[in-house]
Simulated assay, not measured.
Amino acid sequence: MDNLALQCRCGQIKGRAIKVNPADGTRVICYCKDCQAFAHALKAGAEVLDEQGGTDIYQLPPARLQIQQGLEQIRCLRLSEKGLYRWYAGCCNTPIGNSLAPRVPMIGLIHSFIVDPEREAKLGPVRACVNLRGATGQIPKSQLDAAPARGYVGKLMLKILVWKLSGQGRPNPLFSTKGQPLASPHILSPGEKL
């Protein structure tokens, strides 16, 4: 298992994901409109979204995420009152990742926060392309065949259960021990950009 170097664009936030390997996390490309809205709100669409509007995400348990510098720069936004917690660097608007809720032991790291030169080898191939209806262009068939969405949710739920039962939900660097987000979430209004 390897560590994965993490850093925002300007370098004020640095961290690492520990014990990373392709079998113990899940790498997906998400084409949902919400992931696209998050990237556009941060004016980071060009760096984050692929040609079809997809975001490359690596899902892992929170206990394996360590922020070593710049914790005070981390910000949070939500696209609605009950939407995902979407974390980003307040210093340079680099998207960091997504969380469902403090009690769900999973964080989806966005590739723009992963600066490790061996990223591809450490994360392995994309396992699923999800939320295909939100794609802004035709996704190549070869990509869909290599990373089918079929069965993805079941496999992810099993991983989340294992992570929960094995105590990998804590510590969570983005939430307090009482389940409060590190930064008070800003609820994005329609059409708003940061």
Rank of each mutant, 00 (worst) to 15 (best):
M1E: 13
M1P: 14
D2N: 12
N3Q: 14
N3G: 15
L6N: 03
L6P: 04
Q7V: 05
Q7C: 10
R9H: 15
R9W: 10
A17D: 00
I18P: 01
V20H: 04
N21T: 11
A23Q: 15
A23L: 12
D24K: 08
T26K: 09
V28L: 10
C32H: 05
D34Q: 12
A37E: 03
A37H: 01
F38S: 00
A41N: 09
K43F: 05
G45C: 10
A46V: 10
A46L: 09
E47D: 15
L49W: 03
E51S: 13
E51T: 07
G54S: 05
T55Q: 06
D56R: 01
Y58M: 04
Q59H: 12
Q59T: 11
L60C: 12
L60K: 02
P61C: 10
P62E: 04
R64A: 00
R64H: 08
L65M: 11
Q66I: 08
Q69N: 09
E72F: 01
I74D: 01
I74R: 02
R75E: 12
C76T: 13
C76K: 02
L77A: 06
L79R: 01
S80I: 05
E81W: 02
Y88N: 00
A89L: 01
A89R: 01
C91A: 13
C91E: 06
C91L: 08
C91F: 05
T94D: 02
I96H: 01
S99F: 04
S99E: 07
A101W: 08
R103D: 11
R103S: 11
L109Y: 04
S112K: 02
S112V: 06
F113E: 01
I114C: 03
I114F: 02
I114V: 15
V115Y: 00
D116M: 10
E118G: 07
A121Y: 07
A121M: 11
A121F: 09
K122Q: 03
K122T: 05
K122P: 03
G124Y: 01
V126I: 15
R127E: 13
R127A: 14
R133L: 14
T136W: 01
G137R: 05
Q138C: 10
Q138P: 03
I139W: 04
K141I: 12
S142P: 05
Q143G: 04
D145L: 12
A147W: 03
A147R: 01
G151D: 10
G151I: 06
G151E: 11
Y152T: 07
Y152H: 15
G154F: 09
G154L: 14
K155H: 12
L156S: 09
L156V: 14
L156R: 05
L158A: 13
K159A: 08
V162G: 07
K164R: 13
K164N: 07
K164H: 11
L165S: 07
G167V: 10
G169A: 06
R170Y: 10
N172Q: 07
P173A: 07
P173L: 03
S176P: 08
S176T: 15
G179V: 08
G179R: 07
Q180F: 00
Q180N: 10
Q180R: 09
P181S: 09
P181W: 06
S184M: 13
P185M: 07
P185F: 05
P185T: 08
P190G: 14
P190Q: 10
K193V: 12
